[in-house]
């Protein structure tokens, strides 16, 4: 699976409360959640994000609440990949479970700037900053996790496997 898009860049400890504030958790509609994604740290995100774009962030991305609404909001806003130095535990698992591609790659995070166009081959873990021409290699997920993500999440994957 290959993805490509422009980069939104954030710092360390981006918590799930800023990814999707709890005041919007009175719905589980993906579309409504996407309309408020990142609102409390980046008001312009929702207006600027386009299908395929990539979030790049520091350590402990997705810390805090277990709300699956956080990766759901990011995915539904069109983001194709989140690259971080590290992810908080529950967010990491939730992302796989709902089919949001994520990668841990500290070197890429250090070098990639806001607005750069980045492409990534999720199968090999190769991240390329097309704006600067630099390439980085992240540890790719094993094939079965890649398959879960590609199928759109754990439940969709299981339904497909059962057939």
């Amino acid at each position: 699976m290959k993805v490509k898009g422009k980069v939104f860049k954030y710092g360390n400890d981006v918590d799930t409360d800023v990814i999707i504030p709890a005041r919007y958790l009175n719905t589980s509609s993906e579309k409504e959640l996407a309309e408020h994604c990142m609102e409390d740290i980046d008001e312009s995100f929702v207006n600027e994000v386009e299908a395929g774009d990539i979030i790049v962030a520091g350590d402990n991305f997705g810390c805090g609440s277990s709300r699956e609404h956080a990766p759901i909001a990011i995915k539904a806003s069109g983001v194709s990949l989140v690259i971080a130095k590290s992810f908080a535990r529950i967010f990491y698992r939730n992302s796989i479970n709902i089919g949001l591609p994520i990668l841990e790659c500290p070197e890429a995070v250090g070098a990639i700037e806001k607005g750069d166009v980045v492409s990534c081959d999720l199968g090999s873990g190769t991240v390329t900053d097309e704006t600067t021409g630099k390439s980085f290699t992240a540890e790719p997920f094993p094939p079965f996790i890649q398959q879960i993500i590609e199928d759109g999440g754990l439940i969709a994957h299981l339904a497909k496997v059962k057939k």
């Binding site: 805090g64 277990s66 699956e68 529950i90 698992r93 939730n94 479970n97 709902i98 754990l154």
Partner: peptide, 23 residues
């Protein structure tokens, strides 16, 4: 538990941990 503070029950000597809705 699909709530991050599910880890509270460790006070009782249980292993408890928060997960997302799919898990």
């Amino acid at each position: 538990g699909a709530d991050s503070h599910t880890c509270t029950y460790g006070a009782l000597g249980a292993f408890s941990t928060g997960v997302g809705s799919t898990d």
